[in-house]
Amino acid sequence: MAEPALALVQSSPAPAHAQIAFDKVALVLGGKAIIDTISLEVAAGEILCVVGASGCGKTTALRLAAGLYQPTGGAVRFEGEVMRAPRREIAVVFQDYGKALLPWRTAAGNVSLALETIGMPSAQRAARIAELLAKVGLAGHAAKYPTEMSGGMQQRLQIARCLAQDPKVLLMDEPFGALDAMTRQGLQDEMLALVASTGATVVFVTHDLEEAIYLGDRVVGLLPHPGRVGLELTIDLPRPRDQLATREHPEFLRLRRALFDFIKASE
């Protein structure tokens, strides 16, 4: 463990403008510390990527941000308010799209689930469903069942359902991890365009370091056992990002080296 050699970043207390704030958050499950004192804020409209070696609690941190877990120490705040349960302003895109979609509902039906839940009258739903499906490039597939779709299409569908919530925050848990490289790059760009158009805040967990740099305004590296913040990088790459130009940018390569070194040292 070359951990002391790393610059350990301890964030200052949450400023008032933070949309999501982790205030000295700790999580102990079954006597085992999973997350130890993470302090972190995410500003509105920011894209924050979280990386780390397996077992560093990045998915757990995301679930804390979603309100699916409650911290055993400290607090998670959304717009200054302590999170006690999931909220509709915060949508979660799960990695396992195959499990997160309702297999007995068509693409349109799956999007409809979110609209029904927010209480949209059925007369308005059809138009909104068509609009959302078109937004994620599934315009011609409304009547298909998830099992009739490819992995990339299913993940698009899940994103459409999340957008139906009209969220202020999108929490994404390795959403493209199970997809092939080409599909993944396509979806990365689509996601950036969608987020730019909605202005949503994004917390994006990934194990793909290049993906983290490519997407993020900021990348946070977590250290494992127990999970804590080990590195924070601000990504000053021009937007809109480009799969070739951005990835060849000297700054990209510098950040990539820094992130790889960090992960290597933390393992």
């Binding site: 979603a66 699916l68 999931p86 799960f94 997160a100």
Partner: peptide, 19 residues
Amino acid sequence: RLYEVARVLHMSRLAVIFK
């Protein structure tokens, strides 16, 4: 996972049973 989806969407208990 579907129960988690339901929690994130704030579905009512009845909706969770029937949907």
